[in-house]
């Protein structure tokens, strides 16, 4: 009986040492999943999510304090990618997303004030003072940061036009 008690106790102590050592030496620093999410995100640090940049949002999503749907420029595609990565179920229908949008300048309204160009996180708006501005379609991430800065409402979000190069054959309807 004594032998049984002793052996179990010693076994427990030895296993405890092993676990303690394992914990010391096999610790994983940082959270690799955050880096993976950052890779998925638009990366413009536009701040619409309310977190300090895309890294902040990724950390918040992993921690569970922010919903996967918090990134408007990422749209539906980003939400489903995040959901797949984290194994979440997200109600996509609630997300009023009708495809990616970009900012466009209504040339007759633009007064060339340069305010929009100053806030654009990707320098996608081009134009000097007193000149009509233009948006680089390829550089705009659709973050909408410029929209409220425009004094004349010359900037509007419009869906990205579908071209032959960007067209994708629709998925067949499910049988």
């Amino acid at each position: 009986m004594i032998a049984a008690i002793l052996s179990l106790t010693v076994l427990g102590a030895i296993l405890g040492i092993a676990l303690g050592i394992a914990n010391k030496f096999l610790k994983v620093e940082g959270n690799p999943i955050v880096d993976e999410l950052v890779d998925l995100m638009p990366g413009s640090n536009c701040g619409q999510c309310g977190y300090p940049g895309c890294v902040g949002a990724a950390e918040a999503i992993v921690a569970g304090t922010a919903p996967a749907t918090c990134c408007p420029p990422g749209g539906k595609a980003l939400v489903s990618a995040i959901a797949a990565k984290l194994g979440l179920t997200v109600d996509l229908s609630a997300l009023g997303d009708d495809g990616p949008k970009i900012a466009t300048v209504a040339e007759e309204l633009c007064i060339g004030c340069c305010r929009c160009a100053r806030v654009c996180p990707t320098d996608a708006i081009l134009g000097g003072p007193k000149q009509i501005h233009n948006v680089f379609r390829e550089a705009c991430t659709g973050c909408e940061a410029c929209i409220e800065k425009c004094p004349t409402e010359a900037l509007v979000m419009k869906p990205v036009p579908v071209t032959l190069q960007h067209w994708v054959m629709p998925k067949p309807r499910l049988a």
């Binding site: 427990g12 296993l15 405890g16 676990l19 303690g20 394992a22 914990n23």
Partner: peptide
């Protein structure tokens, strides 16, 4: 946290 599973199992 390190030894909680063995403890619970025991």
């Amino acid at each position: 946290a390190q030894v909680r599973i063995p403890v619970f199992i025991v």
